Amino acid sequence: MTADKPQRRIIAVGSGKGGVGKSTLSANLAVALARLGRKVGLVDADIYGPSQPRLLQTEGVKPKARNDKLVPVESPFGLGVLSMGNLVEADRAIAWRGPMASGALGQLIDADWGDAEIIVVDLPPGTGDVQLTMLQRHKPAGAVIVSTPQDLALIDATRAMQLFHQAGVPVIGVVENMAGYVCPHCGEVSDPFGSGGAEAEAGRRGESFLGRVPLTLKIREDSDAGKPPAAGDSPEGQAFLAIARRVLTWLDNQ
């Protein structure tokens, strides 16, 4: 711990629905922010389906406790991580009701984060108990919304935006994930989930557009291997870094 407690701000990453790559975006955003010189922590608030231990190479590592608070697990990518996936066995179902899940989330966020100045919170999909408790008790500085360009995903992303606004949490901006697939053999670009939908929806609602992340085999392979692209200089990594820079510009202007 530093002598002076840092001004710590929470960035919530939400999607309104599952399957849009929110956890991958959260992990890479946190890694990119650390690469840009910020002291970062990440909370995996997806209590029922934690994936950050795999994404950030902390599988099988149990957090310790200090002064009745959890101490984050150190990821090889320069940030601390706390996830239910670090507290329970990988093959164990977490069958908890809302209050238990919300209580667990509180322990993760209120952990001993040391000198971390930014905490990225990977929220579970939807707009239920865990999300509401987090917004009411921990008041994020802002929220990043993740969506694919698909109309069905945009409907749920819009609900997530409304939830944050109702809770008085500003939306930092919208990320369009899985935005275009480049064939590794011929180089042709196709759009299996559509194109530009998230950017257009952000514009209609007066929200900032933070950028696009392509649908590539490399992101899937690197994520499964616990090697977030944001840790490197590939085109995919640069896409995440560009989004992180825009998030930092927003934070620094608050």
Rank of each mutant, 00 (worst) to 15 (best):
Q7L: 13
R137W: 00
A12G: 13
M100L: 15
P140H: 04
S234T: 15
V169R: 02
G98D: 10
P124K: 14
P99F: 08
G128D: 11
G37Y: 12
G41K: 03
L215G: 10
M178C: 04
E89H: 12
L79N: 01
F77A: 01
G194I: 05
V40R: 01
T148Y: 02
D156S: 13
T158Y: 08
A225Y: 04
G126Y: 06
M84L: 14
A34D: 08
G237R: 07
P63K: 11
V144M: 08
V31E: 06
D68C: 05
G85M: 06
P149A: 10
R137K: 15
R212P: 01
N177H: 11
M100Y: 04
K22M: 07
Q238L: 14
T133A: 12
R204F: 09
L82R: 06
A153Y: 07
R92T: 15
P50R: 00
L105Y: 07
A202V: 10
P229R: 06
L248W: 03
D44F: 10
G203V: 00
A3R: 10
L82W: 04
L215V: 13
L123P: 02
A231I: 10
P6T: 14
L154W: 03
N28F: 10
L132G: 02
I11F: 03
Q254G: 14
G114T: 13
V175K: 00
L241K: 14
M161L: 12
T58W: 06
W96Y: 11
P170G: 09
V213E: 03
P72W: 08
T158L: 09
V175D: 01
R205G: 08
V88S: 07
N86P: 07
R246C: 01
D224V: 09
G106H: 13
P76L: 03
T158N: 12
L215S: 10
G128S: 14
T127D: 03
A93E: 12
L217S: 13
H185R: 13
L248Q: 08
R137Q: 15
G128Q: 06
F164M: 15
G206L: 10
T2D: 11
D110K: 14
L82M: 10
H185E: 12
G180P: 07
G98L: 08
P125C: 05
L70Y: 12
C183W: 04
V169L: 04
F209K: 05
G21H: 03
